[in-house]
Design a protein around this nucleic acid. Structure first.
Length: 327
DNA sequence: GCGACAG
DNA sequence: ATCTTGTCGC
């Protein structure tokens, strides 16, 4: 089972089509069917993008307490209530009675988040936390336009100067769900990053500072077999242990998984090794390229991501077509 | 009431 | 991440 071929958006729309007229389900019930209750917010986001309302009856998905939740329609949630009433679902005090009309008999062949967790376990077993040589540095970042991800990959030369930027866009199959970021973003950067094996990758997210020791930066590092570092703006898991004015260790089970760098008494970024680098070297390499709050590789990539998005909108950047510009 | 999660 | 108004500082 190739995890990168699983279309979670399509699975969600398929599940919603199974809800019969006169019944409702909840965002959480769909998330559980997909294999992780934590995906419930993402279910709501995916339904808000429903390309075929009524055909995919997303008005039949409500909150776990029976309240209606939202509805992306000019008339808003009033339309959701009208559709449900027309189908015979009673709404009293703004709530449906889930005891009477709760549908949970979903049929599905795969639970994507179970597949993803199994895959993360396999990836985490391949992580090497020793220092390997690298030729130069690469910074990666993504932005989104609907379901299309737009990646900017900034490649530096041996002296540390930005040399060129690559742009690439592709439709994403997976919504953002905490702890599964790599399944959303890796397929978009895979093709433009393959030939950069041997570079040190800076990625926007955590490395081993992850509940299953398999964050985005580790995932990318292992898949591309290249050194990688995760630099995140906020913490996903871990306990902070202050070391000095501007540094703290981040521990999981008494193990140092990364560092928090502080600027003026405030955490600026969290650094953790992805693959083929030690936790100490990840910190040192990050400090070397940190001029502002965000280290230069990902800071520049983030800047170019905005240009990439404009080009995407203007049809100068087409889906699954590589664009490269010298800097 | 508590806890609350990268992008 | 995105959206969107408002404010601060160069």
């Amino acid at each position: 089972m190739n995890p990168y071929e699983i279309d979670v958006y399509a699975l969600i729309y398929d599940l919603v089509r199974q809800i019969p007229e006169g019944y409702v389900t909840t965002y959480g019930a769909i998330a559980k069917a997909l294999g992780d209750i934590r995906a419930s917010k993402a279910v709501g986001e995916v339904l808000a993008m429903n390309p075929t309302p009524i055909i995919v009856p997303c008005h039949r998905v409500v909150m776990s307490d029976g309240s209606l939740g939202g509805y992306t329609h000019p008339e808003g949630v009033r339309k959701k209530a009208e559709l449900l009433r027309r189908e015979g679902v009673e709404i009293i005090g703004g709530k449906v009675n889930l005891k009477k009309c709760f549908f949970n008999d979903f049929k599905l062949k795969i639970r994507p988040f179970e597949v993803f967790r199994d895959y993360q376990k396999r990836i985490s077993e391949k992580i090497r936390l020793e220092d390997y040589d690298f030729s130069a540095i690469v910074g990666v970042d993504l932005t989104y336009n609907g379901r299309y991800g737009i990646a900017a990959v900034v490649v530096f030369d041996e002296k540390g100067n930005p040399e060129y930027v690559r742009y690439y866009s592709k439709k994403t199959l997976v919504p953002y769900v905490p702890t599964y970021l790599a399944f959303r973003e890796y397929p978009i950067i895979e093709e433009v990053s393959r030939d950069l094996r041997g570079y040190l990758f800076f990625l926007d997210g955590h490395g081993i500072l992850h509940p299953r020791k398999c964050g985005y930066a580790s995932h990318v590092g292992v898949e591309l077999d290249t050194p990688s570092i995760g630099v995140a703006k906020s913490l996903l898991v871990g306990n902070i242990v202050i070391e000095s004015n501007n540094l703290a260790k981040v521990l999981i089970d008494d193990e140092v998984r990364g560092y928090a760098i502080y600027d003026k008494g405030r955490a600026s970024v969290y650094v953790s090794p992805g693959h083929k680098i030690t936790v100490g070297s990840a910190l040192r390499e990050t400090m070397k390229v940190k001029k502002y709050k965000i280290p230069e590789p990902t800071r520049l990539a983030h800047y170019y991501t905005k240009l990439g998005k404009e080009m995407f909108k203007n049809r100068k950047l087409l889906p699954e077509r590589l664009l490269e510009t010298p800097l």
